[in-house]
Every structure is written in C-alpha cells, then in structure tokens.
C-alpha cells in the first residue's frame, strides 16, 4: 500500500504581480472608450423614445442644451433651460453659442452641432422659442437626443 506522505510545505503567497497589469488594462479601456463629463445636469432629463436615431459628431463639436423641470423643486416645476451648469433664459442662447464657437478651432467652426436634451413632458412652445433663437445664432444643425427603441410601444 502506497503511503502518501503529506508534504509539509509553507503556504506560498499568491503572487499579485499580475494584478497591476490587469488593472492597467481596465484603466486603458476606460480611458479610450469614455469621454469626460462636461455638465452636471440640474434639470430632469427623461428623454423621449424614438426609433430613427443617428449618431452625431464628437462631443467637442457639440453644444448641449438641457431643458426640463429643475431637479430641485425649490426652483419651481416649470421647465427651464440649462446652459453650462446654470439655469438660463431663451435670450442667453445666442451668447452661449458664440462662446462655444469661440472655443472651437477655426476650421471646424461651421461644424458646430447643438444637442437638445429635452425632457419629454416639456411643451413645444418653449422648444420653438429655443429653435428660433438657434436660427438667429446660426446654429442650425440640431439633434433631438432620444433613447433608442426598436419599435414604438403601441
């Protein structure tokens, strides 16, 4: 009968030498595939559903306009426009677009696109005013941001 003699060995420590490599891999993945957040949204932003969504240009070429009722009820429940982290009026849009243009490189200035992130309960009256203002500011390429669904729920 074979007798297995238990080898007495001191437990080897689990090598963690590869751990940094794994973490670095994750890190690089996130660095490459994500973009820095630009704004903190202070309005409710439940986007409408749509089927025909298309991608827009890079974030650096896009100006974001958020519209919706403020998240903080102290500011009221009527939909407000948010530009650059603050509540704004329709009249501020022209200046906002100008500022955005000024940040952009010269050769891409006419590529400016405006992404409208509008809460779905917002009334069209306010949105029409915003669009009129965008036309005045010559920022005519717009996108109504939405959530992709394959088919509209009947």
């Amino acid at each position: 009968m074979a007798v297995f003699k238990k080898k007495s060995k001191s437990k080897p420590a689990i090598s963690t030498a590869a751990l940094p490599d794994i973490i670095f891999m994750l890190l690089f993945f996130f660095m490459v595939s994500t973009e820095l957040k630009e704004d903190t949204v202070i309005v409710r932003n439940e986007l409408p559903k749509a089927t025909q969504l298309q991608e827009l240009a890079e974030q650096t070429l896009t100006a974001f306009i958020y519209i919706g009722p403020p998240t903080d009820a102290r500011f009221g429940t009527d939909p407000k426009i948010q530009l650059n982290d603050v509540f704004s009026n329709v009249g501020d849009i022209t200046r906002f677009i100008e500022e955005k243009r000024a940040e952009m490189p010269e050769n891409l200035k006419d590529k400016l696109e405006v992404s409208l992130k509008i809460d779905k309960e917002t009334k069209m009256g306010l949105i029409t005013d915003v669009k009129l203002e965008l036309r005045k500011a010559e920022a005519r390429k717009i996108q109504y941001t939405g959530n992709k669904v394959s088919d509209l729920g009947e």
Binding site: S33, T34, E35, L36, K37, A50, Q52, L53, Q54, E55, L56, Q59, T62, S115, L116, K131, L134, R135, R140, K141, I142, Q143, Y144, T145, G146, K148
Partner: peptide, 12 residues
C-alpha cells in the same frame, strides 16, 4: 461617461 448620444438630426 460613455458617449452614447444619439438623436434625430435636423437642419433648421
């Protein structure tokens, strides 16, 4: 954030 913006594009 992950860039996931998609929308209905329009030219005014």
């Amino acid at each position: 954030t992950f860039p996931s913006d998609r929308g209905l594009t329009m030219i005014l």
